[in-house]
Amino acid sequence: MSLSAQQAFKKLPKKLVDFFTQYPPIPFKQYATETTLTTADDANPFLPNKHPVTNAIHDPIYSMRRQSDLFKLAYKFGVADLLPKLNNGKVFYEERYNNAKPLKGAVNPKGHKWERTYESRKQKIAEAVARADEIIIEARGNKYKRRLERKEKEQKTWY
């Protein structure tokens, strides 16, 4: 059964109705996106505002928790975009999921130590294998060098 506008409005929780009574929805009234004077006509109840006489910064009329609660409730009734801009660039649900900063660990996993040192170790081994003869000569002296040279000279070929 589809709801009419009047029936749907009655479905709205008291919390939201009270808010919209105090702060009419966006097309009927515009709200500041930045801190203004507390007496300003477009003062945003979700942002801290400055008192014109005392210059004191007043806390937002709706605390961070209360504005989050209000937004989440409004979202479930499809009227979240009628609320003024939230404090500290808060976003929820789909928007939050889409704009989420990817996890450092997921993008660049640390890995085990053997994984991290795999490349360098392989390179080190390859270098060592390439220089194997020189290393052995260093360790065992000229006798081995001569043996190598002899081996090369005495190598048999089919031609």
Binding site: S2, L3, S4, A5, Q6, Q7, A8, F9, K11, L12, F20, P24, P25, P27, F28, F77, G78, V79, L82
Partner: peptide, 15 residues
């Protein structure tokens, strides 16, 4: 007027 505006939006969403 505002009630009707909000009501329509809520009805769209809930339906």
């Amino acid at each position: 007027e505002i009630e009707d505006f909000i009501g329509k939006k809520v009805a769209d969403h809930l339906n």
